[in-house]
């Protein structure tokens, strides 16, 4: 198995004060779906934006390694990066309206992506747009091409975003909470679509979400992020079979499962909120919310191995955590 995207020790700071991403490492294998999961503010979007070189002004990125299909992303000029973006690596955002221009029709926006990167005629680009819209389950694509973004429902807009991201046949698709703003019915349809595209086109996907229910259903590998760090990494099967980090266990307990709810008992939850981390922070960032925290958690925390390709960042030994179901 070879990695399409390899990120090692990625750091992102804003104005030197907020350490938004702290030494995050993960690999997206070819043809696989890798999920970044964590609560709001854990650094998932900043990680994705850092990979795409789309960080907001003031964002400082450094990495020991960041390579895409063998190309060192940190060494690329802005122009070279712009040629990759939307072309070999494409991104879809949580709120499709932020990346669709309300003043242009769907058709012209989709066609523009293709002609910019690959040249060719507008007519040919529109044909491809219609074909891809069909592929993502949009009926009557011809009519949709002539419509403006505000004339589409949220689910349709997200499908358009996916079709648009596929225009140039990307190898990597980065999807940042693509279904968080949608109905659960539409969410299931969009995620199924992504899974089919992965199978049909051999697409590699970096999917960002806060919901371990989604992760279980779509991911091959998972990186759990907390306060800018990857606190646990594993294959999906392994992560759900034996989650080790107390944060991962907390996230799992929050997902409501129909039929398993006990009405008179509280749902599992994680008290408190994700802390903002400044530079120079030491120890485990989860300690303010962790039921297992003790004074050693304020010191440097080891990364422990819990099996093949499964590691986590916590003072607790694997077996110990095993004995304490969350």
């Amino acid at each position: 198995m070879s990695a399409l995207l390899e990120v090692e020790e990625l750091q992102v700071t804003f104005g030197g004060r907020t350490a938004a991403v702290r030494s995050a490492s993960f690999r997206v294998e070819k043809g696989e779906t890798h999920c970044l999961v964590g609560e709001s503010g854990c650094g998932k979007s900043v990680t994705a934006l850092a990979v795409m070189s789309l960080l907001a002004r003031g964002g400082q990125r450094s990495a020991k390694k960041m390579s895409f299909a063998g190309t060192d992303l940190t060494s690329l000029s802005d122009r070279e990066m712009a040629r990759l973006r939307g072309n070999r690596m494409a991104m879809i955002f949580q709120e499709p309206m932020t990346s669709l221009n309300p003043a242009f029709t769907i058709g012209s926006q989709m066609a523009e992506v293709l002609t910019r990167h690959k040249g060719g005629s507008r007519a040919a680009a529109l044909d491809r747009a219609a074909e891809l819209m069909g592929r993502v389950g949009i009926t009557a694509p011809g009519m949709r091409l002539g419509q403006f973004p505000h004339q589409l429902s949220g689910g349709l807009r997200q499908r358009v975003m996916i079709a648009m991201a596929l225009m140039c046949d990307p190898e990597l698709l980065i999807a940042d909470e693509p279904t968080t703003a949608l109905d659960v019915t539409v969410q299931a349809q969009i995620l199924r679509l992504l899974a089919n595209l992965k199978r049909e086109f051999g697409l590699s996907i970096l999917l960002i979400t806060h919901d371990l229910g989604i992760v279980a259903r779509v991911a091959d590998h998972v990186s759990v992020m907390y306060a800018g760090e990857v606190v646990e990494r594993a294959t999906t099967a392994q992560l759900f079979r034996s989650p080790q980090h107390p944060y991962t266990r907390g996230l799992l307990s929050c997902v409501p499962v129909p039929g398993r709810v006990q009405r008179d008992r509280p749902l599992g939850s994680i008290p408190g909120v994700v802390p903002a981390i400044g530079s120079g922070f030491a120890g485990c960032a989860f300690r303010s919310r962790c039921a297992h925290a003790d004074e050693t958690c304020a010191r440097a925390i080891p990364r422990r191995q819990a099996g093949d390709a499964h590691d986590y960042l916590c003072r607790l030994e694997p077996d110990w955590a095993e004995l304490q179901p969350a």
Partner: peptide, 25 residues
């Protein structure tokens, strides 16, 4: 039933169900 199926429970290996509602809102 479709609403129930569209709830993605944390059960790996099950994949994403086809809730069969089509794209027409």
């Amino acid at each position: 039933k479709a609403l129930l199926e569209s709830v993605l429970t944390p059960e790996p290996g099950k994949g994403v169900p086809d809730i069969g509602l089509g794209d027409a809102m």
